[in-house]
């Protein structure tokens, strides 16, 4: 009985180890590799191979330049990425799992928090909320009284 258990554990571990080794192999072999929709225009602002590895560094650098110094060049801006790479189906870079950003980020399991704040659709698709409610001018009593 103990021996059977022992064997079972040993085999289980072996299978686990093998699958662990296989996983990166599968990635390297390009199994289930995400298929990306081609962006608009002739070519990307940098080589595709370079962008694949360094887009995050470019974006971070540009983000600080724009945010803190007011530099508004478009070459490495996130808005630029969205303009070219928004999906023809969803109009967005992150609305579905096939969209440009999500396709790779789901595949590699890297969480993105850009889209908590940034729009995932190009500017030309942006419609301001139809009619923002007009602020009422009367005082709202919030369960309080004049002090």
């Amino acid at each position: 009985m103990a021996r059977v258990l022992h064997n079972l554990i040993a085999w289980g571990l072996l299978v686990l180890l093998a699958s662990l080794l296989m996983a990166p192999a599968a990635v390297m072999a390009g199994v289930n590799k995400p298929v990306l929709e081609r962006g608009k225009g002739e070519r990307c602002v940098e080589d595709t191979e370079f962008m694949r590895r360094n887009h995050m560094a470019l974006l971070k650098h540009h983000r600080d330049d724009t945010m803190r110094r007011g530099i508004r060049t478009t070459k490495h801006s996130l808005k630029g990425c969205v303009d070219c790479h928004a999906s023809s189906k969803t109009g967005s870079v992150a609305a579905s799992k096939e969209d440009f950003c999500m396709a790779c980020h789901v595949y590699t399991g890297v969480k993105l928090d850009c889209w908590d704040c940034h729009a995932t659709k190009p500017m030309k698709q942006y419609r301001p909320a139809a009619t923002p409610r007009v602020t009422p001018l009367m005082v709202q009593q919030q369960g309080g009284q004049q002090p």
């Binding site: 808005k79 969205v82 704040c117 940034h118 729009a119 190009p122 500017m123 301001p128």
Partner: peptide, 9 residues
């Protein structure tokens, strides 16, 4: 659906 020029979250 933020304004692309005004990110908020």
């Amino acid at each position: 659906d933020q304004n692309p020029e005004v990110p908020r979250g």
